[in-house]
Every structure is written in C-alpha cells, then in structure tokens.
Design a protein around this nucleic acid. Structure first.
Length: 118
DNA sequence: TTTATGGCTGTCA
DNA sequence: ATGACAGCCATAA
C-alpha cells in the first residue's frame, strides 16, 4: 500500500516554487487512486521542515480545505513566498507551476513565463 | 463487522 | 467554466 513514508520522501523532492497535486504524488508512487491517502498522510505529517507539505495542492490548483482553520492562508503565504502565483480566484495556474518530475535532473525550476494557454 | 470521515478526483448536467 | 456527485481507500470508532 501507499506508505506514509514513501509519500513524505516523494513530497520532499518537490522543488521550491513548484507544486504537485495529491493525485500526481499518488500516481508517481504507483497508486493512481490514492490521492486521498496522500492528503491523509500529509494531514498527519510530523512538523518537519524537511517536508514541504505546502507544495501539495489539489488537482484544481486550489489549496485544500482543512479542519484546522487558518492553515490555508498559511500555506498560501508559504507558496507565494517561493514565487508561486495565484489567480484572482485563488487558484494556482498548474500549467505554469506544477512540478514536472521528468525535469528532475537539472532544469532550474523557473516558471515558464506567461503566454502558453494550452 | 459496519459506518463515518477525510488536505481527493473524474465525470456529467 | 462551475457546481454536484458518486467512487476512492486507509483509519478510526
């Protein structure tokens, strides 16, 4: 099954200034239907600075709701701090900021300038 | 064992 | 595009 540890290890690879989706993480770990488990795992993740939990958002580019109030704002601040942008409706344009693991090797994670609408 | 509840998602009206 | 909804699946009760 999808172990919390494997999830943490993968999330730790998401570079600053980029975001991954729950489903993306699950798929990369070989569990295409495990998105909720990823969220569940992150919800119980230890307060470890080495784990960039804030870089994981839902498939719509929106910061997911939480039981504990306030965390969504906090997450947004952390992301904006890294250069991630939000549109007027509070969504992150995944076309520009989603982590592309196939560029794991060397590409500096500079968001592609605006323009591409596809 | 059965039910409820989540940091989710794809589909469809 | 947007909102509703039914699947999803590990944990907790």
């Amino acid at each position: 099954m999808l172990s919390h540890k494997s999830i943490y290890v993968l999330v730790a690879l998401v570079p600053s200034g980029r975001v991954a989706t729950y489903g993306q993480v699950a798929r990369l770990l070989g569990h295409p239907r495990g998105a909720r488990q990823v969220g569940y795992a992150l919800a119980r993740a230890p307060d470890d600075r080495a784990l960039p939990w804030h870089r994981v958002v839902n498939a719509r580019g929106v910061i997911s709701a939480r039981r504990k109030p306030g965390y969504e704002e906090f997450q947004r601040l952390l992301l904006e701090d890294e250069g991630v942008e939000f549109d007027a409706r509070g969504r992150i344009p995944l076309a520009r900021f989603q982590w592309r693991h196939e560029m794991l090797d060397s590409h500096p994670h500079v968001p592609r300038g605006g323009g591409e609408t596809l």
